[in-house]
């Protein structure tokens, strides 16, 4: 399927409250990464924009069928400079998805490059139907 033209446009990072009731220990804002999700016959792909995150600060968990992406951003501000104008905030990333497909957990691949996370979630082979014979009593 061809990519629909979605022009690159203004970004207003969407800030959210932490997902759980417990307060995070890090006093930083939490933003929702923008994602593309697409699917082929074999895989589900998730691509997420998380500028400021690298392979060491990204955590991906798949619990039951909930996929959670969490990225920690080290906030660095230039020394001896004052912030005079700001259009975006810096903070961690957090987002969860419910997967409708059974995923082969051992074959998940993840890479992060230039602030973009790419996840390949291979679908599990459909469980073989087991035929249960009904014995006559």
């Amino acid at each position: 399927m061809a990519n629909k033209a979605k022009p690159i446009q203004e970004v207003e990072k969407q800030e959210i409250e932490p997902a759980s009731d417990a307060e995070p220990t890090r006093d930083v804002k939490i933003y929702v990464p923008r994602v593309d999700i697409y699917e082929t016959d074999e895989d589900v792909f998730v691509v997420a924009d998380a500028p400021g995150v690298d392979e060491n600060s990204m955590s991906i968990t798949l619990e039951k069928n909930i996929l959670t992406l969490e990225g920690q951003v080290e906030i660095s501000e230039p020394d001896n400079f004052d912030l005079v104008y700001s259009e975006y905030g810096v903070g961690d990333y957090q987002r969860s998805f419910t997967l409708s497909e059974e995923i082969d957990r051992n074959k998940i691949e993840a890479s992060i490059n230039g602030g973009v996370l790419r996840l390949r979630l291979p679908k599990a082979a459909p469980a073989k139907a087991r035929k249960i014979a009904v014995k006559a009593g």
Binding site: E10, G52, Y85, G89
Partner: peptide, 30 residues
């Protein structure tokens, strides 16, 4: 500074300044 404004275009930027110059940052993932 705790409330970033709205970016009228892409990319959004932040600007730091002092007497000797400025630092501009922008998020350009991918």
């Amino acid at each position: 500074e705790s409330r970033p404004g709205y970016a009228p275009g892409f990319p959004a930027i932040n600007v730091w300044a002092n007497q000797d110059g400025a630092v501009v940052t922008a998020e350009l993932p991918g």
